[in-house]
């Protein structure tokens, strides 16, 4: 599903340049649930942003579901993001004046899906994350866990190939974190490929594989015995 070869990325600030990714090689097969770990500043988010086509690598190759991702202009990147990817952010990033339902429906709007169908599909995904009754509430009326579940429903709405989550539980307490992880595990069980950036070991243990980054390089990449979140809820 994802193939990355010798990926490099530097940030330039004035005369200084910071080499963040120093040759990442890594593959993800369909249906995997991978966590990316590492200390702060090790380049986790940078890697995820490149995978999410929100940022571009300086060199190296990236293939997503047999599509080589290179020479992206803004239009193509937007198109690929819309078709292939679903994002889950630490700070949810819901649009604050739109109801839960409208937030979930937004990726579908950019896919050109008609209004009625958008609402039906969005409702379906809200049911899936257990928030059907909250569909007409604004984000400000939802708890952190509920917000993140709306965000997950939104990420799922466009039926992407891969879900990318940057510290999805970073802003949640342990109990809520496990509920969210339970949801993510359920989605993965249905076959969705998911990448999670986290620095919480217990969250990482709930995935099927842990990739460890240090100073821009993968220092460890190993399968783990998945712990079901439902066991803790």
């Amino acid at each position: 599903m994802i193939e990355i070869k010798d990926l490099h990325k530097s940030y330039h600030m004035g005369s200084n340049s910071l080499h963040v990714l120093k040759g990442i090689n890594f593959n993800v097969k369909e249906g995997e649930l991978v966590s990316i770990m590492g200390s702060s500043g090790s380049g986790k988010s940078t890697l995820l942003n490149i995978l999410g086509m929100l940022d571009e690598a300086d060199s190296g190759s990236y293939t997503l579901g047999n599509v080589p991702i290179k020479n992206l202009n803004e239009k193509i990147a937007a198109n690929y993001r819309n078709k292939f990817l679903g994002f889950i952010f630490q700070s949810f990033n819901l649009i604050n004046y739109k109801s839960a339902l409208d937030n979930v429906a937004l990726p579908l709007y950019y896919q050109g899906v008609k209004r009625k169908e958008r609402a039906d599909k969005a409702m379906h995904y809200l049911e899936k994350v257990g928030l059907a009754e909250w569909s007409h509430h604004l984000p400000s009326e939802l708890s952190g866990g509920q917000k993140q579940r709306v965000a997950i429903a939104r990420a799922l709405a466009s039926d992407p190939k891969v879900l990318l989550a940057d510290e999805p539980t970073g802003a949640l307490d342990t109990k809520t974190s496990y509920e969210v992880m339970d949801l993510i595990q359920g989605i993965n069980d249905e076959g969705k490929t998911i990448l999670i950036v986290t620095h919480e070991p217990d969250i990482a243990q709930m995935t099927k594989r842990i990739v460890n980054l240090k100073d821009g390089l993968i220092i460890d990449d190993s399968k783990v015995e998945q712990i079901r979140a439902s066991a803790h809820v």
């Binding site: 819309n82 939104r154 466009s158």
Partner: peptide, 16 residues
């Protein structure tokens, strides 16, 4: 700005 960022992450074309 943030809303625009969200919309773009969700696949909005710059011109849209």
């Amino acid at each position: 700005t943030k809303e625009i960022g969200i919309r773009k992450a969700l696949g909005a074309q710059p011109w849209s």
